[in-house]
């Protein structure tokens, strides 16, 4: 089998849609999203089972009224500011994706989390506080309501409302053009990498 750097088969992701789930709170860290005790697996296969594991359970280990327990089947997570801060673990967005999240609308994201979303083809778009809170409240009132995130047009549509959102340039370009698999993108530049490396004094010195 020949090396296939492009095995990701990236799709053009111009829009994602579905029902929503509000995950309220600022500075929601990746330890909450995916507690470290569940990272002791060598694949991401089971991560959905551990999403917000502690927050979703009461003292007896039973599911409580956490939004993820109430909005089963949702595709669009709506979050607040600095979401995904802390640990760089990709387990966090992997768990969200495997639970069913196809897109995230929020006030802001930690950078590594946003990068990880991009790697997975999950658009993470932003809007201001009031706009996000209104959407979260709308989901509470309309659990079966459809939300459409237009990545290319930078809008989110729900009910009769259309809001403008921002999508980071690199993320929009990558998703819309279907080039979010950076391994494939960079693998084709191998000869250029060799040139860069040849100019680095510390690499030469090690050989």
């Amino acid at each position: 089998m020949a090396p296939d750097a492009n095995a990701g088969d990236d799709q053009h992701i111009t829009e994602v849609s579905g029902t929503g789930v509000p995950i309220p709170g600022d500075d929601v860290d990746t330890d909450q999203i995916l507690p470290a005790q569940f990272m002791k697996e060598v694949t991401f296969d089971n991560m959905a089972d551990y999403l917000f594991y502690d927050a979703r359970r009461d003292e007896d280990g039973e599911f409580n009224d956490h939004p993820l327990n109430r909005f089963e089947g949702a595709s669009i997570a709506v979050v607040n500011s600095n979401f995904g801060c802390g640990s760089s673990r990709e387990h966090a967005p992997q768990a969200m994706m495997r639970w069913g999240v196809d897109g995230v609308v929020g006030e802001s994201y930690a950078e590594i989390f946003r990068d990880n979303c991009k790697s997975l083809g999950i658009p993470a778009v932003t809007a201001d506080h009031e706009t996000v809170v209104e959407l979260q409240e709308w989901i509470e009132a309309n659990p079966d309501g459809d939300i459409e995130v237009d990545v290319e047009g930078e809008t989110v549509t729900y009910g009769d409302t259309v809001i403008d959102v921002e999508v980071d340039d690199a993320m929009r370009e990558a998703l819309v053009e279907g080039i979010w698999d950076t391994t494939a993108l960079m693998y084709s530049n191998r000869s250029k990498v060799d040139e860069t490396v040849a100019d680095l004094p510390y690499v030469e010195g090690d050989d």
């Binding site: 760089s88 990709e90 590594i112 990880n116 790697s119 950076t182 391994t183 693998y187 191998r190």
Partner: peptide
């Protein structure tokens, strides 16, 4: 993240 680790390993 892990997908970026793949990037670094491969490229």
């Amino acid at each position: 993240g892990t997908s970026q680790i793949r990037d670094v390993l491969a490229t």
